[in-house]
């Protein structure tokens, strides 16, 4: 059943440097699905699409191309667990494929640096690779069904948009992530404005925290209203946004009003596959995951 495949694991910044617990869960779970991860030694920031691309697109394109060139050299496609990095690579590849002169510009920048770049390696989001295996294959791996767990699925923007540059079946309301969540036995709840942005991107979190947190709060309130046990994501930056915004809101309010566990997909799947919470980094969250663990582990 499980066919082995190897990818260059692109870490980015937020995952290894702020949420290594998410990285840990990816490293535990993906190989068990036959998805092997090779280190992409010497990779840099993707660079971040909302900030660095906004400041100077040619620099963004050159650095993104360097990361892709490292994967090309390794002979693999990139796999990433961050929607921002995913967006950067998808858009950077599109630009050089559509505009050969931009590829030549990048190659000119690389001159004499020992970097060969032909834009041949692709970039995939890990959820794309997992969905290619299919919800049925995931169901087969489940030894501890997460029955009764109510999950609010958050896709994140750059996973889905711009839709012309994404591999998903065209739909204003995709379901692939809901299917993968339900394959664990959990239930994907309906909630208001499910496809709304988390508010972190575009440099807004970096420069205008009140607006950014306000967008996150609206989303979290909608999730709480629907009675979900946790908000589930597939992006290290959305993950950071939901974790940190709740801590910030509680501080402002002077009470622990926001306690919604924030769970990354490989953490949820890992639990269903029988892995322990510590193996999945579930003990290193900003907002305690206890309520979820109690429900799952009893």
């Amino acid at each position: 059943m499980t066919v082995s495949q190897t990818y260059s694991f692109f870490l980015g910044c937020v995952m290894p440097n702020r949420f290594p617990n998410v990285e840990k869960s990816i490293r535990e779970v993906l190989p068990r699905l036959g998805i092997h991860l090779e280190e992409l030694e010497g990779a840099s920031c993707c660079p971040a699409p909302g900030v660095i691309r906004s400041f100077d697109e040619p620099t963004w394109l050159a650095l993104a191309s360097r990361n892709l060139a490292l994967a090309e050299k390794a002979g693999h496609d990139i796999i990433t667990g961050c929607n921002g990095c995913y967006g950067t690579f998808k858009e950077a590849l599109h630009i050089v494929h559509e505009h050969p002169e931009k590829l030549r510009d990048v190659q000119k920048v690389f001159k004499g640096l020992g970097l060969r770049y032909r834009a041949e390696a692709d970039a995939k989001h890990l959820i794309e690779v997992v969905y290619d295996l299919g919800p049925d294959a995931i169901r087969e791996k489940v030894v501890r069904p997460l029955d009764g767990l109510e999950v609010a699925v958050h896709y994140g923007c750059h996973l889905l948009k711009p839709s012309v540059l994404r591999p998903w079946k065209k739909s204003a309301r995709p379901t692939f992530l809901d299917e993968l969540v339900e394959a664990t036995g959990a239930h994907s709840v309906k909630y208001k404005d499910k496809f709304q942005c988390c508010g972190a991107g575009g440099g807004v979190r970096g420069s205008n925290v009140p607006v950014s947190v306000d967008i996150a709060q609206e989303k979290i309130d909608n999730v709480l209203e629907a009675g979900a046990d946790c908000v589930l994501n597939v992006c290290s930056f959305c993950h950071l946004q939901f974790e940190m915004s709740q801590a910030q809101l509680n501080k402002e309010l002077g009470e622990e009003r926001y306690r919604l566990p924030v769970v990354y997909y490989t953490q949820l799947l890992g639990l269903a596959m029988g892995l322990g919470p510590k193996e999945l980094g579930l003990h290193k969250h900003v907002v305690s995951t206890e309520p979820v663990l109690r429900k799952v582990l009893g």
Binding site: C157, H158, K161, P162, C197, G201, G202, V204
Partner: peptide, 12 residues
């Protein structure tokens, strides 16, 4: 100009 989160909703 810096309040856009680059969510791409308007573009869609």
């Amino acid at each position: 100009l810096w309040l856009c989160t680059t969510c791409f909703t308007c573009l869609e």
